[in-house]
Write a protein that binds this DNA or RNA. Sequence first.
DNA 1: TTGAAAGCGTTACCAT
DNA 2: ATGGTAACGCTTTCAA
Lengths: 334, 334
Amino acid sequence: MKATIYDIASEAGVSIATVSKVINGKGKISAETRNAVFAIMERLDFQPSVIASALTGKKTFTLGLLVPDISNPFFAEIARAIEDQGHQLGYSVVMCNTDNKDEKVERYISLLLQKSVDGIIIATGIEKKEILEQLMARGLPIVLIARELPMLAVDTVVVDDYIGGCMAAKHLLELGHTDIAILAESQKVNSSRERMRGFKQTMSEAGLLFKEQFLKICDYKVEDGKSKALELLQGVERPTAIFACNDMLAIGALQAAKEMNIGVPSAISIISFDNTILSSVTNPPLTTIAQPMEQMGKLAVDLIVESIKEKKQLKQRTVLWPEIVIRESTQEKI
Amino acid sequence: MKATIYDIASEAGVSIATVSKVINGKGKISAETRNAVFAIMERLDFQPSVIASALTGKKTFTLGLLVPDISNPFFAEIARAIEDQGHQLGYSVVMCNTDNKDEKVERYISLLLQKSVDGIIIATGIEKKEILEQLMARGLPIVLIARELPMLAVDTVVVDDYIGGCMAAKHLLELGHTDIAILAESQKVNSSRERMRGFKQTMSEAGLLFKEQFLKICDYKVEDGKSKALELLQGVERPTAIFACNDMLAIGALQAAKEMNIGVPSAISIISFDNTILSSVTNPPLTTIAQPMEQMGKLAVDLIVESIKEKKQLKQRTVLWPEIVIRESTQEKI
DNA sequence: TTGAAAGCGTTACCAT
DNA sequence: ATGGTAACGCTTTCAA
């Protein structure tokens, strides 16, 4: 049914070794046979089997990608960047949605191993770092993107969350806000912790005290951001600005303000983090600390491919600079 | 390095055939040897190579998924549903972003063929239907989702776009609107054409005339929706309602109205199509015709898997019913 | 209940 | 410049 190297060989009246050589451009082959073989491959619509060639020790040119949920715009944008660069360099990417569950992570990793992927890019949180250690022990190239596992020598690409937090605080401070609340993700998430740390640090450097009752820890869901923001806005003391640790939470805050008829940014300023498509689509559009998702994805792929080609064995941690995107959800305190 | 079936066999003092049988639960194996083999597989952390087993004629348990752009929330949500169900049934999915370009489609298909995927789910537009015909001639299972290629016997899962268009019109009509504009996608897109057709049909059945100057054909981009909506709103005759053929265009319309200080829905109603996360996040949140993305994805996978298992060879076209989700972007004409 | 051996589509080494 | 052949890790058939 599908043409194989044997079909080509017999059709061309040469050996399979010769065909293999012309496919891979190896060895010395006369222009004449080369052309003949190419012509026949074309005519028979021959596609060399990656499967078979992988079996002989070559690569599968396939990467695994672990994300919590591709329907989350942040990860969708990262995934797009990764697939683009992967494709550019000749790799396919297998998408895996983990829902941030270690058990699913383990299942997917096992599957990817069975399929002999050349490397795995991980954008999902992992609690048990043994999972990764085991993987690394196997010598499989790994890179972490947008997540980190401290104290593990693994290639990592992240944005500087601490600086991002600082930038958010600086912006709000410059606008004259002093009563500021934070909508954070679970403190198990390293990036969220760092964003908060940068934020608080900048406040205290400005001689301001962050009021702990203004800190709300949320799930990663619009709904939860909304209910926590509602608590904030209904409290006796009301903040004049909110720092949401991601776009989803910021949207929740926006909805809470709307529900309470509190103007944004007139009565309350909201700044978020990520700069996914969501932040440009809300009303008002969100001022946000942008993660350079495209470069992050590209970099992650470049790292893993280098590591697959064994061009490098030093592990590195690349920290990208965030950037503030000022839209319309923040304004001077009045 | 990685344990193979040989390692297990020699460790267990049996033949590789025996090991193969216990892995696949085939043939008759004594409980004793079975347990021994299992124990050793466990101890050696053995992962059977899908590559090798695929080479012997079995499947790769991998599906290709062609989407225009995974960072578009509609396709991200579809992709999530597909990956979920695929994983459920034992299949991995390779994601491919085509940007709706036939050349990229062809490149990806060729790659997927080389990797011996068991089937391809296509959610991307294709102009040259020969591409598909060729694929089908190879006997590779294919299913189309959210796109169709008329006059081609291929499994297809779509929402009833015509009915969806009718529902949108009916809603607007019930609210008393008569001057209604349409923001459509390229007329090459079958679904957009159908939505429009249903919409116009319903209007004319109500004895209303659709004014052709109220039809704007757009790209698939927020920006374009905005500029086209702006033209509409700045015209001498201004519509009191807009039907946008997808969420992105509706967002553009929302932005246009905001820029012109036209209240939504007080001065103009906007209804959209898709019900991606975007429609719930805008202000006001969008009334929209929902596509059941989750079921569509699940169904597509079920179809392709059946077809892989050769349980079925009849091609079918499954048309799902859309549903209107009323939010706050539409109201009675005043 | 178990095993030997052929075969899957390539690559790579060694001959010619 | 070209070809023969072992090897990759597994499944399957046939024998024992």
